[in-house]
Simulated scan of single mutants.
Amino acid sequence: MPLSRQAAFAPIGEIVARQVLPRPHHARRLPLRISCIGTARYDGLGDPDGFDRTIVIGECPSPEDAMIFASQRVARGEVRIGSDDTLRSRPRIMVIQDNDQRLVLAGEVRAGIVLWRQPVGSDAEARRVVIKASRLRGMAFAASGHGDAASARDHRYRACLLEARLVDPFWRETAAELLQVPQAA
């Protein structure tokens, strides 16, 4: 009776390649930095007077910890620009990057939660996303040239949402696994 592939022992080379070698490579890319892209404005000024702002909110040792940290900060409303009480921030996109500034994961902030974006599945899909985002950025540039700041900000925001899927190839599998919905038994 032949043994099935699953019942057999894995070759040592496969164990080293899949489990041992990635660990040091992974460790060089840590800690992970969590940032928030959003808009800011001073009290008494309307939304058209706001400006885009990126805020670094912390570092974490793993993607799981970074997701939890970011989600908790958003849920508690703890994404602040600084100590100025007259400066209000509106978080729009949470971004997790590794030590080399490569995108690990990103998500849209809505109603006090982070909706993490599924990473692209291939380089071809990444190219399509880049083309769409570039078009939106071109539209933002044109709107800005016509003095339509609100429309320009909206186009830039939509481009950022698309680019949130451009997870670095090194992190794509990890990000996809983190976003898998548990299946009912």
Score class of each variant (00 low, 15 high):
R76H: 11
G107T: 07
I81N: 00
T86S: 10
F9G: 05
G13I: 06
L32K: 02
S122G: 02
F69E: 06
F141Q: 07
M1I: 11
A175D: 02
D148P: 04
I113W: 05
G44N: 06
P24Y: 14
D84E: 14
Q183E: 07
G44R: 07
A159Q: 03
L115T: 14
E108A: 13
W171R: 01
E177N: 03
A159W: 01
R88N: 09
Y42L: 14
I81Y: 00
A140E: 02
R76A: 09
D148V: 08
V16L: 10
L162M: 09
F141H: 09
S83V: 08
D47T: 14
I131L: 03
G58H: 12
R102P: 00
V20Y: 13
A66E: 04
K132R: 11
D52V: 12
V16W: 06
G77Y: 03
R41T: 12
A159G: 04
L162Y: 03
V95A: 02
S144W: 10
E78M: 09
A124W: 03
V104T: 03
L178S: 05
D47Y: 10
R41Q: 14
S71I: 10
D123T: 11
I37Y: 11
L3G: 08
G50N: 04
Y42R: 13
R28W: 07
S89Y: 01
Q19H: 12
R156S: 05
R127P: 02
R92Q: 13
D123G: 06
A27H: 08
H25A: 08
R80K: 09
I34A: 07
R29M: 04
R88M: 13
A150Q: 10
S62Y: 08
W171I: 06
A66R: 02
R158N: 03
C36R: 00
R102A: 04
P22E: 06
R41C: 08
D84Y: 03
G46A: 12
R23N: 10
L105Y: 01
A149K: 13
N99K: 12
E125T: 07
I113L: 08
R135Y: 14
M94N: 04
I81C: 01
A149F: 09
F69P: 01
